[in-house]
Structures are given as structure tokens and as C-alpha cells.
Design a protein around this nucleic acid. Sequence first.
DNA 1: GATAATACCGACTAATTTGGTAGGTATTTA
DNA 2: TAAATACCTACCAAATTAGTCGGTATTATC
Lengths: 133, 133
Amino acid sequence: MMFTTKTEYGLRAMAVLARVKGEGPISLAQIAKKEHISQPYLERLFARLKADDLVKSAKGVSGGYLLARKPKKISIFEIVEALEGPLAVFYCLLDENTKVTCSHRECLTKKVWHELQKNIIHTLRKFTLADLI
Amino acid sequence: MMFTTKTEYGLRAMAVLARVKGEGPISLAQIAKKEHISQPYLERLFARLKADDLVKSAKGVSGGYLLARKPKKISIFEIVEALEGPLAVFYCLLDENTKVTCSHRECLTKKVWHELQKNIIHTLRKFTLADLI
DNA sequence: GATAATACCGACTAATTTGGTAGGTATTTA
DNA sequence: TAAATACCTACCAAATTAGTCGGTATTATC
């Protein structure tokens, strides 16, 4: 029950992008060096960030990555979900339905997970990339 | 970022114990059958629950497990921590200190994790085993 | 006292995830 | 044309999860 370094690396990299906003694209090589992260690993993280439309890319010389939106418009929740996949504290909550009933005999536990997950998402939505810089 | 079946199995087994409270010890074989959980796996989960003083055991024929306290006095948080280990949404929060400063350059992210973890623990402490039965 | 039921213990396995490496292709600026 | 970049695929080691197997110690009951 822990977020992995994927999230830490991703948030740090996104924070770099937020700080150099307006200066054109920044390459993964630069980010990797600045943040001491393996570049090929960063590449895969950015593939996810791009798939979720959190960053834009520019190929070729002097290419790199840019934030797709203003830092204030990118919540920590979005970054976490892009990197770690859909946030579900339990399997039975993966379908994103908000009903408390489920096929388990022990449905009462789902009430706990449901409230917990609501709190987590609320907290992660409250903070944006702008809060990190 | 998900609780595992360890927690689900453990909570279900603890709920069984809570329901048969006052009827003497119940064996793991019975619990495993009732809840369709592999018995050797359950054994290991109960080793953790016992290590954290959430259950008591009785060896020998007609032995088994009992709750160490009343269901109302056992929070979901305690059960989760017994089974999954110390709850930390991030490595830098594992030492349980409550300061927001840390050795990372990106200390601002720690503020987010810290608030998140506080919320999670608060929610898990709010619910007790009695709420599940 | 023997037996069966139980907790308890350690070694092993398969599948998955994480974090990382290596090498290549496509694109684009200079 | 060349160099810098994104982008892609395959592989690898370590850790974790969920589970199996076989054994030992203890104890109530016959």
C-alpha cells in the first residue's frame, strides 16, 4: 500500500517542466540528469504522461517535452493515475462504480474502502502541479 | 497503490471471529472453509495478527483463535497494519516522523503525501471490526 | 497412554510488478 | 548530411504476492 518511485520520478520530472515553462521544450536527457533518474526509465514514464495528455512532445533536435496545460490545471491525481494506473484501493472498486453493493459476502468492508478511496482522490485532486514549485 | 488480498482475507477472517465471539476458539480450518481461503495462507496471516496482539490462540484439540479484544476496540487500521506492514504512502514517510522537511530536493511533494497519509489513517481508525458485522 | 486435532514453522513455487538496461528506428533542426 | 531527440521493443534482476507442501509441538479426548 504505497506509491512507487514511478510517482516520485514522474512528479519530480513534471515539476521540472513546470519550472521551465515558457522556455520551449526540455529534453528527457536534461531532466534525467537534473533529477538523477535513468533516462530509458523516464522515457517510459513520459509515454504514460503523454498518453494521458499531460505533456506534449516535439521530436528532433532541440525537441523535448512541454506541459500540455498550465501547472494549476494539472492535479496531482491526474499525474498519479497516469503513472500508476487507475487508483483503486481494492479490486472491487476498480470499475469506478460508486455503489456500495458488491458480489462479496462481506460487502460491509466495501463501505470502508469506498470512503477511503473517496478521501484519497479528494486529497490528490486538491493539490496541483503549481503547488509543488 | 492498492491493498492486497491479504487485507481482504484478514478482514473477512477477523469478521468471522467477531461473529462467533463468546463461543470459544474457532479453528483456522473452519475459517478457511467458511471464507474459501487457502488454510496454509491463512496460517501466515494469523501469525501476523497474533504478533500484533489482535488475536489469541489455543493449541490442541478444540483449539483455535479468539479475538484479543472486543470488536469495537479493534480498528480496521490495526488489522491493515498487522497484515500489510506499516502504512506509508511513500518511502520518506516510513519513519513515522511528522515533519514535512526531508532530504529530497522536492520536499514540497512530501506535504501532499503527508496530508494524504493522515487522511487514510484517520479513515481506517474511524472504522472498527464491529462496523463490519 | 494413544490418537487426532490443532497451532506453528520453514522451504519451495509461479506469477506479477518494479526499476533498470540495451539497442534500435523515425523525425527534425541546424 | 549529421546530430539530437522522441519513441519502440526486448530483455533482466529483485521483490512481492498468493499459494503449496511437509513437518513439529501441543493438548483435549477416548
